[in-house]
Amino acid sequence: MNKDIWVFIEQVQSNISGASLELLGEAVRLKSKMKNPGKIVAVIIGSQLSELIQVVSMFGAEKIYVADHRKLRLYQPDYYAAILTHLIHQEDPHILLIGATYIGSQLGPMVAIRVDTGIAAHCVELKIDDNDNLVAVVPAFGGKLLGDILCPNYRPQMASVKPGILEKPERIEVQSQIVPVDINFLSLVEPKLKPVGICCHEPKGVPLEQAEVVICGGWGVGDAEHWQMLEKIAAKLGGAVGCTRPALDEGWSQGEHTMVGTSGKSIRPNVYLGFGISGSTHHVCGMKDSKLIISVNKDEEAEIFNFSDFGLVGDIKEILPLLMQSLGIS
C-alpha cells in the first residue's frame, strides 16, 4: 500500500484551473505532514496538453498521468470517470483530491461510487492524522458547524475543495515523471451522453476571488439604483462586487458567479465591505477569511456584526451617495 496523494487537474480554456492549482499546493503541504509520505501524482485528461503538463510540473507533481486524445477535448463524464477509475484500480492511491467545481462536483462523487470509496464534499480544511490518514473538515448547516470526516476503511480517501478556499501555492521545481495513459479501453465505453458544445464568456472586471477589495451587497441594498452605486464604487477602487442570494434573486447583481457563500464563491480579500447583509451562516462561510471586514447595517442587532471587525450602524441609502461623492464618482 502506497501513500501517494493524487490531484485531478482540471483545465479552463487550456489553463490549469485555480482549484487544481490550489490542490497541488495542498498536496505538497499534506505530504510534508506525513510520517511515511508517498508521491504527489497529477492526473490530466484532455486534448493538446503539453503546456498544461509544464505548469503542473512546476508545482510539485512528481508523477503526471496524461490521457491526451481528441475525444477527451470536451468533458465527457463517462470517459473521464473511466480513466480515473482505471488508474485508481491499477495504482491504489492513498488520497485523491478534486476541485469542487462544476465538473469536479459531478466527477468526484461518480468516481467514488465506481471505485467504492467515500468522498468528503466541499472541504474547508484538510489535515493528516497520526496514521498518515486524511482528515477532511466539512461545513454543515450552512457553515455553522464544522465536522471532521474520515474514511478509515476505503481507498482512496477522496475530498473535494471549492476554488478560493486554499492558498495559492508557491512554485517548486521537481523532476516530474510523465506517464502517458493508454486509453484504448475507452472503445468499450459507449456513452449515451454527448457533449455538443461549450460556451465561455470572458469574465468582466476583476474576478471576485482575486480582488483586493470586495464590496458585497445584500437584500438591504434595496433597489437597482443603489446597486449601481456599489458597482461604481467597486470599479473606482479596482475591486469586485459580490452578493448574497436575495440580491441575486432580485436580479440586481451580475449573476450566480458573484454570489459569496456556501453555494457560491469563497473569498479572502484584504478588505470586505458589506452593505445590507444580515449575516446568515450561508454567506459568512464564504467571506470569513477576509482580512478586514467592515459591515454596514441599519439594525444594531444584525448577526453580521459578530463576524465583522467593524459594524457600522447606518442607512446604506445615506452612506453610498456620500462615498460616491468623496470618491469623485458622478
Partner: peptide
C-alpha cells in the same frame, strides 16, 4: 464509507466593534 469525527462550532466572531455616528 465516510465517518464523522470531531465536531466544531465555527468561531467566526471578530472584534465586532460597533461604530455609530452621523452618516
Amino acid at each position: 464509507p465516510t465517518q464523522a469525527g470531531n465536531l466544531h462550532l465555527l468561531d467566526l466572531s471578530r472584534k465586532g466593534k460597533i461604530i455609530k455616528g452621523s452618516k
